[in-house]
Design a protein around this nucleic acid. Sequence first.
DNA 1: CCATCTTTGTGCACACGTTCACAAACGCAT
DNA 2: ATGCGTTTGTGAACGTGTGCACAAAGATGG
Lengths: 287, 287
Amino acid sequence: MAIGRPSPSSSQTPDPGAARRSSRARGIPEATVARLPLYLRALTALSERSVPTVSSEELAAAAGVNSAKLRKDFSYLGSYGTRGVGYDVEYLVYQISRELGLTQDWPVVIVGIGNLGHALANYGGFASRGFRVAALLDADPNVVGSTAAGLPVRHMDELEEIVATQHVSIGVITTPPGAAQQVCDRLVEAGVTSILNFAPTVLTVPDGVDVRKVDLSIELQILAFHEQRKAGDEPSAGDSVLDRAPGPVRAAAAKLRRAAGGKAEPAKAAPTAKGGPDDDLSAVMPA
Amino acid sequence: MAIGRPSPSSSQTPDPGAARRSSRARGIPEATVARLPLYLRALTALSERSVPTVSSEELAAAAGVNSAKLRKDFSYLGSYGTRGVGYDVEYLVYQISRELGLTQDWPVVIVGIGNLGHALANYGGFASRGFRVAALLDADPNVVGSTAAGLPVRHMDELEEIVATQHVSIGVITTPPGAAQQVCDRLVEAGVTSILNFAPTVLTVPDGVDVRKVDLSIELQILAFHEQRKAGDEPSAGDSVLDRAPGPVRAAAAKLRRAAGGKAEPAKAAPTAKGGPDDDLSAVMPA
DNA sequence: CCATCTTTGTGCACACGTTCACAAACGCAT
DNA sequence: ATGCGTTTGTGAACGTGTGCACAAAGATGG
């Protein structure tokens, strides 16, 4: 992975390049990998209903994608279907599980046992797919010692030992944003090479370490954007001609803004106050 | 599983088409929209440190993207920078906020107050970006009446009234998977047009309704895939020559599999047992 | 006013992802 | 065997996203 990357780069989820290259190595496009869990879920449901085979059309509908995409996705795995019939459900479940690496055990540590940490610890879908919570960790003495989902919350200082003895390679960060990078560094140092980050922070990691992030705030903002579109549109504010004007006009406006003394547009919104969004340490749950 | 559902289209997150079209309408690519919140976060941090201007290089580093991409992204919004200087932080914060629709109030309802619902209700980043929790809802009488994050948990039956009187257009689903579609239908019926789904289910919604999903299980599986890559690779199991063999050989194998009586490869993994992953109603937190 | 230095904005080429559409492959009935 | 209906697997076209590299625009100093 990480082919031509010179210095340590933060291979966050949004960066397709790095992740893509690493998976394309053996041929499976990143976009396809991201959909495999979807197919697996749909197939598992069919399997439980003892359905022997499915057509690409049916399975695609169940997974919420179109059938051509599904067929192409499967073609990267090999030719597991039978023309005129469809795909063997059980066989496909197994093949996808294997491809995703779910046929083996993945011990996971969760760091930061706030509201979200609790939620994740209780998540049933964990164990069912080969993931096992190896330990719950927190730095707060008030939290350490309590139990969540039947597991004891242990102190951060035990991190290194746990990772080493249990061969943990995946870590989940559910700390406040301020602590995330520090925790991340420690995880990496201890030997963790894949991190799922719920804190609203850009994590910087060395080459060879994968980071994926889940960010509720971002998802909501994207929804808001589309929602605004649906409404009358027109971003509403002091938009006018200036903003989209070309060259000179715009430049002059910029100059004016700077001259006006920092604060441009004494707008009603624009969160500038302290204790705001991301530094809000009270937010144990960041996403 | 909802096979031939022809009518309403389910515009889940993975489907770029629908979402893209709606945003491209006025020009901003979906990929750019998805990054705007990232920039906004970095800019807000700079703003709090009273930094007046940033170069694309600096801001890009803070947001974890490359500078060319950032400049191109901003170019879709208009020409808000000054050559030789950079971007005015305050002005940009305002412009991005406006573009994302964050200069207005977005009341939100959260349905399903389990562990995750609690976590979200307590999320500080909510209010700070124009999002306001209008109500917490649950169907369980044991939960209704309790309080979370200072707000009372109200019964699902109040949904319609709340949505109508408070003009709620965004709903967050944090119910068990089994209840998700039902809750979704009710939200849509009540007038909600944007849904953030944490339940591991494919939601079907009418045209005009946006759905984004957050799925922890999927993220972990993607990490596992890459993790497996890093290790010795070789998906390990009865791979051999057969799986990737062309034409006739493969076909014969498929025939054999079917003839063998359903269950192919009595593999150790492949979750087939009941009480498994997605139907696990005990999993209040799905993601 | 001119030269120089910095940084933006963008044209262009390329890579990736999606979708169409169709031939080849298969089951099944005759 | 042969033909027919079904469904896969994939080549090719298209659209999107990314990154390079550079000209144009502004700042700054003499």
